[in-house]
Design a protein around this nucleic acid. Sequence first.
DNA 1: CACCTGTTATAACATTAGTATAACAGGTGG
DNA 2: CCACCTGTTATACTAATGTTATAACAGGTG
Lengths: 131, 131
Amino acid sequence: MLIEIDFSSDEAIYQQLCNQIILGIATSRLSDGEVLPSVRQMADEIGINMHTVNKAYTILRQEGFVKVDRRRGAFVSVSDRNRERAIRLVEKDMRVILAEARCRGLSKQDMLALVDRIYDEYDGVIRTDDK
Amino acid sequence: MLIEIDFSSDEAIYQQLCNQIILGIATSRLSDGEVLPSVRQMADEIGINMHTVNKAYTILRQEGFVKVDRRRGAFVSVSDRNRERAIRLVEKDMRVILAEARCRGLSKQDMLALVDRIYDEYDGVIRTDDK
DNA sequence: CACCTGTTATAACATTAGTATAACAGGTGG
DNA sequence: CCACCTGTTATACTAATGTTATAACAGGTG
């Protein structure tokens, strides 16, 4: 999977890396069980330090998106599938986003439509622009 | 409005302050035109430095949630109501959240329900737990 | 044994967050 | 005019964080 880092972003490199890998899993560009490039290889490809990649992998492991096999290295593995816990994890961030959206005059329907559209996109559904 | 800061959070103080004020506007605990405490007063109340509050106010001003009247000080004023731009601003963060949600096994319906619930909460709608 | 994996340790450097002190310009009310 | 309020700016300092650099180690592969 192609990783693109914006070095002028105010978002930390390791954070961008985490997000892109999670995006990759969600959009099936990374499939369950797929081996990730080694920390050294990924660092070389992107042009950053090994430790920055390692930090991203460590976080992804803690959050349950990645596991490590001593033989093969890091690979995609979404372990924790506890529904209630997952909702709780997402809810806090969602509250901040929805607050901002509401302040900017966006309606509930606007946000439901946005979620619907992005989710379909992740699912690979071809939309015929149904209004 | 009561502001609560978690000093052991990994989220910056000024960021927490911004979020809480936006949350306050979204939930109508802060109404349009309402004057915010002065940077010095707010800093004293919370127990932080004046500059940290000033940083939050400056960001809120840049993002269009607050304006400054030389006579009265800072007050709530959601200026920019451009719908397309608002959606674009929210979309990027939403993509990250939805990717994480999808990886954790949450369905589109789960997320639509979450958005629906939080939005109603912000609107002050009393839900009769309709399934 | 050479080579790969993640992991750990240590040091150095740059940027950011937060605090502290002080000053300034504009506006208000005595 | 004067004291007092507002946000704003400047400067300096400390602490934490992000990133890099170099090096070493244990486990597994061929």
